[in-house]
Design a protein around this nucleic acid. Structure first.
Lengths: 147, 147
DNA sequence: ACGGAAACATTAGTCGGCTAACGAAAAAGC
DNA sequence: GCTTTTTCGTTAGCCGACTAATGTTTCCGT
């Protein structure tokens, strides 16, 4: 679509949208062979850093809606990546814990993630990569700020 | 999540993912008041440039899978944005045509799109915006190339 | 001319986002 | 201490993305 939709003065939105879809597809392919769906790796990432978090806390850390995490956790439970446990003191909370399989995937997914970055950013210089990431973070901050 | 998931040497992927989600949400809010769902504006964009395209052709121009367009068109038909017509010479093809309402939304959605860009890129200089868009296009090209 | 191959749209089913509505448990207020 | 409010997780339902499978129609090769 890149060349065909330059109707706006600022063609940033279509470019971002194309990039988003390309990344989604590439990530899907990259993770499917590990039995992990695109998006689930970020939940795993949270739990690698701190196991036993609640769905709500995961949602907060990932800036997602809680129901999104709830359902994702259910699917990850089905595929044996995590388990739900009751919280010891607060009966409202649910503790999401990694299974052995969930823990064991860390290195593989780490490598997959780096490979994905490398493919996406091929031809980008060091400084350019940093600038790109910085701009993405600025964009996120801009959009999350005024709401 | 921005500060909490810096586990990889290259934290580009989480940054992109956050930006993607922020953009999706912002776009959803921006377009919903016009009765247009996030994603549908790109189909409209195609048809504004050239009305009567087939679902497959739209999919090709937007780099989407055909079923995605098929179902989107069905929903847009329901909400009165487009209509399906038979192709005059090729019975396999379907011609997707804008309704008056679909045509009339052009200016409003154009403005909404520019406002979204502006919000997302607040604080970015002219050159920075161009560089950002260029990098997004490069990313898309990288990922679409080696498949 | 006819039979197989290719192109096209659609349906069905999966997953990841969201909002809205619920019900249960803890906290806060009186 | 009891009621109200807040917090939390889940369910239900919408939409956008995908793949796989189906059924037509056209096209091509023999």
């Amino acid at each position: 679509m890149q060349d065909r939709l330059r109707a706006w003065e600022d063609d940033f939105v279509p470019s971002f949208w194309s990039a988003k879809n390309a990344m989604l597809q590439a990530a899907g392919v990259a993770f499917e062979r590990h039995g992990v769906r695109e998006g689930q790796q970020f939940v795993l990432m949270c739990l690698w850093r701190e196991d036993g978090l609640s769905p709500g806390e995961i949602a907060r850390r990932l800036s997602l809606a809680t129901p999104t995490v709830t359902r994702t956790v259910t699917r990850m439970e089905t595929s044996g990546l995590v388990e739900r446990h009751p919280h010891p003191t607060d009966a409202r909370l649910v503790s999401v814990r990694l299974t052995e399989r969930g823990q064991g995937l860390r290195a593989a997914l780490d490598a997959e993630m780096n490979a994905l970055s490398e493919r996406a950013l091929r031809g980008f210089g060091e400084e350019e990569r940093r600038a790109f990431t910085r701009m993405l973070d600025a964009l996120t901050a801009n959009l999350r700020a005024e709401r």
